[in-house]
């Protein structure tokens, strides 16, 4: 006669009720897969917005004839702004050379110029967390305070639109994310409840022969955690397959679209284990109260 530990008891359930166990793992897996897919889309959308936001740049045009020492001093001052990631000073000559190179249609006009009409400028890239309208505006205001700065541009309308898009994405992501998570919790909870109900007789016998509640909970919690782990792995695997197929279909070479990182997968697994444990605990306790 083999001794039955709580772990062995939990594992035996998979052997005894393979169909029901598989169904509950599949239910956890598919529910988390839905959430996973949504977050994968959200992750890639956020990345796309971040790529767009990299273009947020503040350009401060310098008055003609500003002494080099003043420019050097200003370079140090502006670099010290907390929002500034990178600062580049573009001389009048460099600006003209760039215009000739990049604005092909005006190449002829720029070639015959006697006087360079383009001013020197500071081109400032902001740190990722400051790439929004409010911070760009604040940096622009500060730059306007320098007497040798003639004008400051940062594509105000464009940055504001990007801000709105980001806010909208965050709100929609949060609402839909919570809704998906709530639905998943309900589905998984019901599935686990069915498996516990199926063993109601066993629970009532345990209580009648004098088992403590914590003894009864043990195997159910282990079973819930195992189902959570397997369901989580299944969900991540399905997300990966879907992601790979999508990437292949769109011809992405692996640079544009991104998959979950280690931290995100860990969070997903912890959520799966938590939901398995929580679902089991709630279901068993409900059953314990009713027998």
């Amino acid at each position: 006669m083999k001794h039955r530990t709580p772990l062995r008891e939990a594992l035996l359930v998979f052997e005894r009720t393979p169909l029901l166990s598989s169904l509950s793992i599949a239910s956890i897996g598919f529910s988390l897969f839905t959430i996973g897919l949504f977050f994968l889309v959200a992750l890639n959308f956020r990345r796309a917005l971040d790529v767009l936001a990299e273009r947020v740049e503040v350009v401060a045009f310098v008055l003609r004839g500003t002494p080099t020492e003043t420019v050097s001093q200003a370079t140090q001052d502006i670099t010290a702004f907390p929002e500034v990631l990178e600062l580049r000073f573009v001389t009048e000559e460099q600006a003209l050379a760039r215009a000739r190179r990049e604005l092909v249609e005006f190449r002829e006009a720029y070639r015959d110029l006697e006087v360079n009409p383009l001013p020197a400028s500071f081109e400032i890239r902001l740190k990722p967390e400051f790439r929004d309208a409010a911070h760009a505006q604040a940096v622009a205001e500060r730059l306007r305070g320098f007497p040798f700065i003639e004008d400051v541009r940062y594509g105000r309308d464009w940055v504001e639109r990007l801000d709105k898009l980001r806010t909208m994405a965050a709100v929609v992501g949060l609402v839909i994310g919570y809704a998906f998570a709530a639905v998943a919790i309900v589905i998984i909870g019901v599935t686990i409840r069915i498996t516990v109900l199926q063993r109601a007789k066993e629970i009532s016998i345990m209580r009648l022969v004098g088992a403590t509640n914590s003894y009864i909970r043990g195997p159910f919690l282990i079973e819930g955690a195992i189902k959570g782990i397997l369901g989580g792995v299944l969900a991540i695997a399905m997300c990966w397959v879907t992601f790979s197929v999508f990437r292949k279909t769109t011809g992405d070479t692996g640079t544009t679209l991104i998959f979950f990182g280690g931290l995100q997968m860990t969070v997903m697994m912890l959520f799966a284990i938590g939901i398995g444990l929580g679902g089991s605990l709630v279901s068993v306790d409900r059953q314990l109260r009713s027998v």
């Binding site: 006669m1 001794h3 004098g210």
Partner: peptide, 26 residues
Amino acid sequence: RLLEYRTVEENVAFALEVTGARHESI
């Protein structure tokens, strides 16, 4: 109220296991 998936001796042992009886004595 017996558990069908347990043998006769396992059904009886069940009452001892849940009460934390020493394994050797079961």
